[in-house]
Amino acid sequence: MQGFTESLVLGAGGLNIGDMIVQLVFFLGLLALLGKFAWGPLMKMMKEREDYVANEINTAEKSREEAQRMQREASEELKATRQDAQNIIEDARKTAGQQEKDILESARAEAERMKESARQEIEQEKEKAVQALKDQVASMSVMIASKVIEKELSQKDQEALINQYIDEAGEER
């Protein structure tokens, strides 16, 4: 019964200095060996993975920013291009309007000039005609007057004169 109580209190063997020393040596040995062969490599691998993941995240973040920047640039460029195109169209429209106006203007001026010169020509022709008519009237009056004077001539002569006159008139034409 004494063995029973003793073993309840201190366990099967009690406190053995030898066990303690062995435990200490074993545990420290285990600590060193595992640290070298198991935990070290394992933790290195985990660290490596952590770094890898962090690196990947960084890279992804960077490329995302890059993509965003490029997109922004592209959209800005597109906007600028659109603006340019708008400007060009606007310019063309303006130039076209100007040209249209110029052409119309010059056409009108040309027409005006042509009309003017035609009118002048007509005027000149008219004056010429009037002049010619005047000349003719004058010469005919003289002729008539001379004929009236020649009335006192003989019948025969008169007839001859008329004939002559008619002939002359025919020639005159």
């Binding site: 201190l10 053995n16 066990d19 303690m20």
Partner: peptide, 9 residues
């Protein structure tokens, strides 16, 4: 299950 060993630890 030995006190000496656990106390050592």
């Amino acid at each position: 299950a030995d006190p000496g060993i656990t106390l050592t630890l």
